[in-house]
Design a protein around this nucleic acid. Structure first.
Lengths: 346, 346
DNA sequence: TGTTAGCACTCGATAGAGGTGAGTGCTAAA
DNA sequence: TTTAGCACTCACCTCTATCGAGTGCTAACA
């Protein structure tokens, strides 16, 4: 994988990738030799191109056309040649101006971030809210809907609201419920749901212990409310912008792409891959990839508050994406969102 | 508009519309004369077709092709010729089996309904949740997020949860908040938000009256939490199914359609049109329509619980939609959802 | 030995020609 | 009033020719 290229080859590969990013069309040797001043004739460039093709970094759609970078070629470009310039203060300030987080609910923030990412990059914005399991318990309330049916409302540290309908002992009074929620709010405050679950499991296994009636109920209600898996929330913005990209110009490809976007499951799977990475993670959907987002690349970064609830945001675009522009955008936005969750800024 | 056609013309129009619905291709006189036993030669059929074209009910894409119904033709078909058979018990039972509402949150129900509508019709399902303003107050809770910032959580009669970040007097204690919410919950119970707002406005104008401190705070918090407009929630399911329809087979049309679906505003505007109608409402997006959903028809019906919170659900498909199949589906689903909201069934 | 000019070749894209067939409008006969 | 017959239209397909950007190879050159 880590084959070393001499400088000339690197320069030419870089030129081809960048020209291809700009034009979406195969790049010929003449164009390279003319536009960039390598002082090489087309013939020499062709020799280098043939080598790069042999290495699997380039390919040609047909015998007599220019070259386009392969997935591997893009990967090499990203790993070795891509220079991501850090944003200066003014650019950061400009970027911040696009976001308005004041008095926004968690959902609104997620949605807004997706919209801005999409608007600025002109690709599709993706945001995955922090996973339920990693959120920090702040408060739980129970509201009676009908005989034996309660609405449990859970609020996390960051103001994320989850609700769930649960079945419960119909003899519970409003006062009971209030006591139960007071008890739970005191008991569980500051723990992640992960920790809450462990605690609940511990308590459940200590069944020898005699609990009073209410504490028993509290245990069972909180289990019902917090034990299940909760579907991850994904926000997709600007899907139609992808349809303007030449790689998705045919009806079949459009349909496939939109289907992929509709299946949140696939997106979650993709975004999860970035969760383990530190900083910006670039996923190049190569031709051979198991995941079926052919022709797409995904640039993600995690955001988190100090207590550690981790979400992921990013931009999905064609493999031929403007990485040097989108990477800093994603990077800085993730930092911004992290600070918003910690209420450092509004 | 209400031009009267003789029986033969009606029969032929109906045959053309139905064949066109099935095939999506222009219908020729030969096909009509052969497949349907009107005992008419193609030439006679042609004469009738020429008349129908003159009346604006049919048109031909070009001189020497068969006819396709115009928007007006479809409208005539829907108004006059379409026979919607009521579902029998078995069909209703089958339909019900597709839905699982047990212990579902409002959002889940809406999403599920959209999915099933789309799956059964093979078009795109739309559901608009009951408007905030028409929901019935059940409970409000305030949760402190940080100094001076509260999360107000509102729960409606049907279990719809809305939350909003509001600014508040930072000196309010947790006990204050509990008292305030108790007061509001007693005071506003059973009123629609519409009514709540009127009440709040009345109270605000009686400003001569001396209130105690807490009541004043209660007033201001409930105003902040309930006074603003809340964006309507729209659930779109199976958008990609539309891309398989021949009327949206070109890249440009696909792009336009997906853009329309992304703009929730447009969808809300469309669904709102059906809100005033009783029963099933059919909106044919004619060529000249102001609203930009060319080539689409929308079949909607309202659902509501007994207290009157009204939402709208429906199916959007090509104008060439299978009305006789989709209309009963939408109709019965709306009834079903209404009963679910009233907790008559699960 | 690396570089370059020259040349034959490939192949997608574009345009025009010709044929096919479904369907029409018109007319005249039944 | 209905219908058979006929000339005509036009989208669609296929075949062919041309064009041009780009390639690989070879031989000459610095």
């Amino acid at each position: 994988m880590a084959e070393s290229l001499n400088e000339r080859s690197q320069n030419i590969l870089e030129a081809i990738v960048e020209d291809y990013i700009a034009s979406a069309e195969p790049i010929g040797s003449r164009a390279i030799s003319r536009k960039h001043n390598f002082n090489l004739s087309p013939a020499s460039v062709r020799n280098v191109m043939a080598d790069l093709e042999e290495m699997g970094l380039l390919c040609s759609p047909h015998t007599s056309s220019g070259r386009i970078p392969t997935g591997k070629g893009f990967q090499y470009y990203i790993d070795t040649l891509l220079e991501v310039r850090a944003l200066n203060q003014r650019e950061k300030q400009n970027l911040r101006k696009n976001y308005r987080f004041k008095n926004m609910r968690m959902e609104d923030i997620m949605q807004e971030v997706g919209r801005v990412l999409s608007g600025l990059s002109q690709y599709t914005g993706l945001v995955m809210a922090p996973k339920f399991i990693s959120t920090v318990f702040r408060q739980i309330e129970f509201i009676r809907l009908s005989q034996g049916r309660l609405l449990a409302i859970y609020v996390s540290e960051t103001g994320l609201v989850q609700n769930k309908v649960i079945e419960a002992d119909p003899t519970l009074t409003v006062q009971d419920l209030e006591q139960i929620s007071n008890y739970l709010n005191a008991e569980l405050n500051g723990m992640t749901i992960q920790e809450v679950r462990e605690k609940l499991n511990d308590e459940l296994h200590k069944d020898r212990v005699e609990y009073d009636r209410l504490k028993k109920q509290a245990l069972s209600l909180s289990c019902a409310a917090l034990q299940d898996e909760v579907e991850d929330q994904v926000y997709v913005s600007g899907a139609s912008l992808m349809l303007g990209q030449p790689e998705f110009s045919t009806p079949e490809k459009m349909k496939r792409l939109i289907q992929s976007f509709e299946s949140k499951k696939l997106l979650i799977e993709l975004l999860d891959r970035g969760q383990s990475a530190q900083g910006v993670h670039i996923f190049v959907g190569s031709e051979s990839s198991d995941i079926d987002l052919q022709g797409c690349s995904l640039i993600t970064s995690n955001f988190s508050n100090q207590k550690g609830a981790i979400g992921t945001l990013g931009v999905i675009g064609p493999v031929r994406m403007n990485y040097s522009q989108v990477v800093p955008l994603v990077d800085f936005t993730a930092q911004l969102v992290s600070r918003v969750l910690d209420r450092e800024i509004e």
